[in-house]
Simulated assay, not measured.
Amino acid sequence: MAYLSFIDDDEAWKLNDHSCSTTYLKKLVVVDDKGRQHLKTLQFCKCEVEAVRLIRFNLWPSSTKFPNVAFHFDFMRWLCGLLLESSVSFKSFCSALDAWTSKHMKTYIHHPVKDLFKVLVGGTADEFRHFIYQMENIHDDGSKCPACYEDSPSLISLLEQRI
């Protein structure tokens, strides 16, 4: 019986939206929708911020300036749903994810992120949640606090009609 080692398809992920002479390749740890980590090569362009390019790949960057980890949108939706609906802490989520991930899968990646908790707790999930809110409520620019009182004639006239 022959042993077949894991072969990583390291073809660079590209978006064919425009051709540019300032493209470059960068390796990132990509966390897929099931929480598995993959070392992938992605094509970036100097015309566009890396975080924006990752969003166009349906990946959420770990930071806006120099992301080295990216999370699939479905993974982030799963995390935010558990945080909001089940009151699961970041630490508990990451511990459960670590226990759920196969030990064999961990050997496929050469530079795994050992502590996703540190990456996620730094505001990554909160920024994603705000981003999704803005995408779903495109008419609201998010600059006004819904809890703050605003003196507007429409609000006052609505209150007067109820009295």
Rank of each mutant, 00 (worst) to 15 (best):
P61W: 04
I55N: 07
L15D: 08
S19P: 05
S5F: 03
F75L: 13
M76K: 03
C47G: 02
S19N: 10
S5M: 04
T64A: 12
D151V: 13
W78C: 05
F71H: 04
T22M: 02
E127P: 01
G81P: 08
W78S: 02
V31T: 06
K144V: 10
K26W: 02
R53M: 14
A12W: 08
S157F: 12
P146W: 14
K103I: 13
L28V: 09
M105K: 02
I55S: 03
I156W: 10
M76G: 11
I7W: 01
S63H: 05
L54H: 11
P67R: 10
S87I: 03
V113K: 10
K65T: 14
V29D: 00
D32A: 02
W100T: 12
G142N: 10
A12T: 15
G142S: 11
A99Q: 14
E136L: 15
A99W: 04
S62T: 04
K27W: 04
S157W: 08
V121A: 01
S154V: 11
K91R: 15
G122C: 08
A99V: 13
I163Y: 10
S102R: 06
L4S: 11
E136H: 12
A96G: 14
T23E: 03
E150Q: 13
S86G: 04
D115L: 02
D126H: 13
S21W: 04
P112K: 07
R77F: 09
S102L: 13
K27Y: 03
A125T: 15
Y108A: 02
G81I: 08
A2T: 15
S86Y: 05
W100H: 14
V30F: 06
L97K: 02
R129Y: 09
V69E: 00
Y149M: 06
E150S: 09
E160V: 10
W60G: 11
L82Y: 09
C45N: 03
L159P: 01
L83Q: 13
S87W: 00
V52P: 01
L82M: 14
N137F: 13
F93Y: 05
V52W: 00
S5G: 10
L54Q: 12
C47P: 00
V113H: 05
L83R: 11
L83M: 15
M105H: 11
D141S: 12
L159S: 09
L82A: 09
L116E: 01
D140N: 15
L79H: 03
Q43N: 07
P146M: 03
E85H: 15
Q37L: 07
H72P: 05
D74E: 15
F73W: 06
L97N: 04
H104L: 13
D10V: 09
S152V: 10
S87N: 15
Q37N: 06
L54C: 11
L39H: 01
N68D: 10
K27F: 05
E150T: 12
K26L: 09
T41Q: 07
C20K: 04
T124Y: 00
K26E: 07
E127M: 06
L59R: 06
W60H: 14
L59E: 07
I132A: 03
L42N: 07
R56L: 10
G35S: 05
V69Y: 01
D74W: 02
S62E: 06
P112G: 09
Y108I: 03
V30E: 01
V119F: 01
E160I: 08
L158A: 12
T124I: 06
P112C: 11
M105R: 05
K114F: 01
K118F: 00
